[in-house]
Amino acid sequence: MFTYVLRRILQTIPVLIGVTLLVFSLMHLIPGDPAQIMAGESAPKEQVENIRERLGLNDPYPVQYWNYISGVLQGDLGNSVRTGRDVTNEIGVRFWVTVELAFYSMILSIFLGLIAGIVSATRQYSFSDVTLMIVALFGLSMPNFWLGLMLIQWFAIGMDVPSWIPFIENTAWFKPSGWGSFEQIVLPVITLGTGGAAIIARMTRSSMLEVIDQDYIRTARAKGAKERVVVYRHALKNALIPVVTVVGLQFGALLGGTVLTETVFAINGMGKLVIDAIQARDFPIVQGTVLVAALLFVLVNLLVDITYRYLNKRIDLN
């Protein structure tokens, strides 16, 4: 186990180097000059040139990259081009907001996805199976920014409810923006979690259906086990194996999704930070955020693989 974790951590090093290199190249390929943006559009040439020099933007690319990497290795992600503030700080303030958003959404995805998947699989071709799978298809095909806007419209701005429905007058139950309170958390989490829930539901269903046909399920029934035990103890644990892999990959999509969700709900997280930074060609912020996101993704997937190992005893990590 220890060697495995060690090996996996060692493996992340080239991944992270690759990520920084890729982001670095891409940022320099897209048009737009950060110095120009900082100085303002009508600024004199000398001023722009001064800024360029100060930021080291005139150095050859390999030198710039080397300077950046050696900074990173010392824990220095550089300073924001736009605000001049320390990138580590800028990310640090927003990091937990995004992690919370991603974490709650993930929990919602897994919870809804598993329940829907199990119910569907154990009642194959029934009314509830068909309904759930249609709902899942909707969840899957709906762009999450659209879902976010609709949720704001319905449950944050609110709809007037006809007077013949008792107790409810208006559906403005939640807040449309910000992060922290329960009223603020609910809608973004639903927005971000729906897609994942749909994928996990479909995956759980097909995986369960496959496992239910296995010989060891018949063995469990032949032992005299109750159907509930057969489904939850014998089938589910095996069916989860492919689902866990999907959950890990899903986390990447989720991190990408935070960018849109945070923008729609005006949440001051890493997603919003990176969008603003890209618009301002604020290289150090973009680099830093992507690096942190990549690290997060790699860590979550390491966790997933360890869970996978726990579920699937046939995989010998060493």
Partner: peptide, 15 residues
């Protein structure tokens, strides 16, 4: 009444 099956490889729960 008990039963054993053909495939000992797949008749036991791997987990």
């Amino acid at each position: 009444i008990s039963m054993i099956f053909q495939e000992p490889m797949t008749s036991l729960n791997p987990t």
